[in-house]
Simulated scan of single mutants.
Amino acid sequence: MKQLLVFFICLVLVSCHDIERPEKPKDLLSKDRMVEVIIDMTLLTSAKGSNKFELQENGIIPKEYILEKHRVDSIRFAKSNEYYSYDVEVYEAIYQRVHDSLEKLKTKFTRLDEEERYSRKKEDSIKKTSVLNGIKVKNELIKDSLTKPLSKIPDSLR
């Protein structure tokens, strides 16, 4: 058993030894473009988790849709991704920008959602007040008609 473990450790060390930096692709995506594509892929993948049926119903395959939107083929994206991922610091910087952008979007949509809820709540309270005022007015009319002296009621109704 020990010999097998030592063999696997040696195999891992030897296999990781000669990793060469990938060649820079001729059609390398810029870092900015990579950030945009990854942001869209992340958003659509999240939507896929919550709205899978709607995406299928509309014939949307998330990865294909994003690559088509950005006019990037899958090979170009894969080669660019491989090139940038070799340098961990560059790749981390790209993903930090993705994270920051997603956080800004989250903040923006949270704020918009809160404003929409506040607006709906305000509209509901206005409708509620209008309804209550309408009932109040009707109740006062009823009270007035019940409290009027009989002398003011026409003779035909007495």
Rank of each mutant, 00 (worst) to 15 (best):
K69R: 13
F77I: 00
R117M: 15
L44S: 00
S151Y: 15
K106H: 13
L146D: 04
T45H: 08
L55H: 00
K128I: 14
E54A: 02
E116G: 03
K48Y: 14
I60C: 11
I75Q: 02
K128G: 07
T129K: 11
A78Q: 13
T129F: 09
S101W: 01
N58C: 12
N139G: 01
E20L: 06
L157Q: 10
Y91L: 00
K152E: 08
E123P: 06
I75W: 09
R33M: 03
P149Y: 11
P22W: 04
E116I: 15
A93C: 03
K148Q: 12
F7K: 05
D32V: 04
D27S: 14
E57V: 12
E116Y: 15
I135N: 04
T107H: 06
K148V: 13
K24G: 05
L11N: 11
V35I: 11
E114T: 08
S145K: 07
H70V: 03
Y86F: 04
H70S: 00
K2F: 09
K31E: 02
K26G: 12
S46P: 11
K52H: 15
K104G: 03
E82V: 03
I9Q: 05
L44G: 01
S119W: 14
I66D: 00
E36M: 06
D27K: 12
C10K: 12
Y118N: 05
K143R: 14
L55M: 05
I19H: 07
P25A: 01
H17N: 06
K63V: 02
R117A: 06
E115S: 08
V131W: 13
E64Y: 15
S85C: 09
Y118L: 10
Y118I: 06
V12N: 04
